[in-house]
C-alpha cells in the first residue's frame, strides 16, 4: 500500500541543472521522513513538487492519495507547508496572519477567528497576537509560520528546514511541537541540514545529492552501513602503538568494512572496526592490560549521522576517480552503486 507521500521517478530540470534526477520517496502514514542533503542537493525542489508549487518534468507523486499534478487543489486542502523562510506577512499581526490563512483554507470567518486564537495559545504567541509580525523574534516568526501551516490540521505536513537559523532553545521548542504533531498522527516530510534533528525526529531518512537518492533507511541502518562500531584506543607510550595495534587487530570484526587497524602515530590513537559492542570493549581492556600496555583513553565509537552524511555526500562530491577509490576501500558503498547504475 502506498504511503501518505509516494513519489516515483521525479525529475525536474532548471536549464542545464537536473535538480531532481529520478527521485523515489515513500512515507508511511503517521511517520516522519527526514530528507537530508547538502545545499543544492534538491531537497527544496522535492518539497516544491510535492506541495504542488512546481510541476515535475517526469515522474509522478501522490500525497494523501491525491495526484499532485492532476489534483493540485485537492492536495492543497490536505497539506500544510512551513517553509525555509518564515512566510508570514510582517505588517499583519500574528492573529491577522492566521485568520487570513484560515479564510484562504476556506474556513468561515468565525471558524478562522476561533482557530487563530487556539493556535496562538498553543504556540505561545497569545501575548504578541496583536502586534505586527515584524516585531517578532526569529523563533516567534517560525512558530507563527508553522501555526499557519496547521490551521486546518492537515494530515500531511511538509517542513523545509524548520529550524535553520534558530538558537538552541527555540530549536528545542520547535522539536517538541513537531513531536506532538507526529504523536497526533500527522505524516511529516522534513528537510534538514542538521543531522541531530533528523536523528531525533525522523523514522526514516533519505539522503539526496545532485538530485538523486543516494541512501535511505532508518538512522541506525544508515550508521551501520557507514561502517558500524569502532574501538578507539589511545596508548600512553608511543612505542607501544605497534603492539597495541596487533592486539586490537585480533578483535577486529570479520566482515566489518573499513580495512584494518588505523594507527595515528602522533596522537597515539588506534582504531579498529569491531562488532560486539560493550562486552568486546571489556575484553580489549583486559587483553591490553595483560600485555602491560598502558592506555590513556578507550572508547567504543558509533558513527553519528554526521559521519554518514559526510561519507555519503563526500563520495558524490568528489571527482569520479576519488569516489571509485573510496568506494572500493569501503566495500562498494551506496554512492558507488548509484554511480554504476547510471
Amino acid at each position: 500500500m502506498p504511503g501518505a507521500i509516494h513519489a516515483e521517478g521525479l525529475v525536474k530540470t532548471f536549464g542545464d541543472v537536473r535538480a531532481l534526477d529520478g527521485v523515489d520517496l515513500d512515507v508511511a502514514e503517521g511517520t516522519v521522513l527526514g530528507l537530508l542533503g547538502p545545499n543544492g542537493a534538491g531537497k527544496t525542489t522535492a518539497v516544491r513538487v510535492l506541495t504542488t508549487l512546481l510541476r515535475p518534468d517526469a515522474g509522478r507523486a501522490v500525497v494523501a492519495g491525491l495526484d499532485v499534478v492532476r489534483q493540485p487543489d485537492e492536495v492543497r486542502r490536505s497539506i500544510g507547508l512551513s517553509g525555509q523562510f518564515a512566510a508570514v506577512d510582517e505588517y499583519l499581526t500574528g492573529r491577522e496572519n492566521l485568520r487570513m490563512v484560515g479564510r484562504l483554507y476556506q474556513l468561515r470567518g468565525r471558524q478562522a477567528k476561533a482557530r487563530a486564537g487556539e493556535l496562538l495559545e498553543r504556540f505561545h504567541l497569545a501575548d504578541a497576537a496583536d502586534r505586527p509580525a515584524r516585531t517578532y523574534s526569529g523563533g516567534m516568526r517560525r512558530r507563527l509560520d508553522l501555526a499557519a501551516a496547521l490551521v486546518v490540521s492537515p494530515p500531511v505536513m511538509f517542513m523545509d528546514e524548520p529550524t535553520t537559523g534558530l538558537d538552541p532553545r527555540n530549536r528545542q521548542q520547535m522539536w517538541e511541537v513537531i513531536e506532538e504533531l507526529v504523536a497526533a498522527g500527522t505524516t511529516l516530510l522534513l528537510t534538514t541540514q542538521y543531522l541531530e534533528e533528523a536523528d531525533r525526529l525522523a523514522h526514516d531518512i533519505c539522503v539526496i545529492d545532485h538530485g538523486r537518492v543516494i541512501a535511505r533507511g532508518s538512522s541506525d541502518e544508515l550508521k551501520a552501513r557507514t561502517g558500524g562500531e569502532r574501538v578507539e584506543v589511545v596508548v600512553h607510550d608511543r612505542a607501544m602503538t605497534g603492539t597495541a595495534a596487533e592486539v586490537m587487530t585480533g578483535f577486529m570484526a570479520g566482515g566489518a568494512s573499513g580495512g584494518g587497524a588505523t594507527v595515528e602515530q602522533h596522537t597515539r590513537r588506534i582504531t579498529v572496526p569491531v562488532s560486539g559492542g560493550a562486552k568486546l570493549l571489556a575484553e580489549v581492556i583486559r587483553e591490553l592490560d595483560a600485555r602491560g600496555i598502558e592506555i590513556d583513553d578507550i572508547g567504543l565509537r558509533r558513527p553519528t549521522l554526521d559521519d554518514v552524511f559526510l561519507w555519503l555526500t563526500g563520495h558524490a562530491a568528489q571527482d569520479a576517480g576519488a569516489a571509485e577509490d573510496a568506494g572500493a576501500a569501503r566495500d562498494a558503498g551506496p554512492a558507488a552503486e548509484e554511480r554504476d547504475g547510471r
Partner: peptide
Amino acid sequence: HKGLIDRFRSLPMARGA
C-alpha cells in the same frame, strides 16, 4: 521574494485571487 506567494500557492484558494 518573502515566500508569501509560495504560501498562497500551497493553499486551496482561487487561482487569480
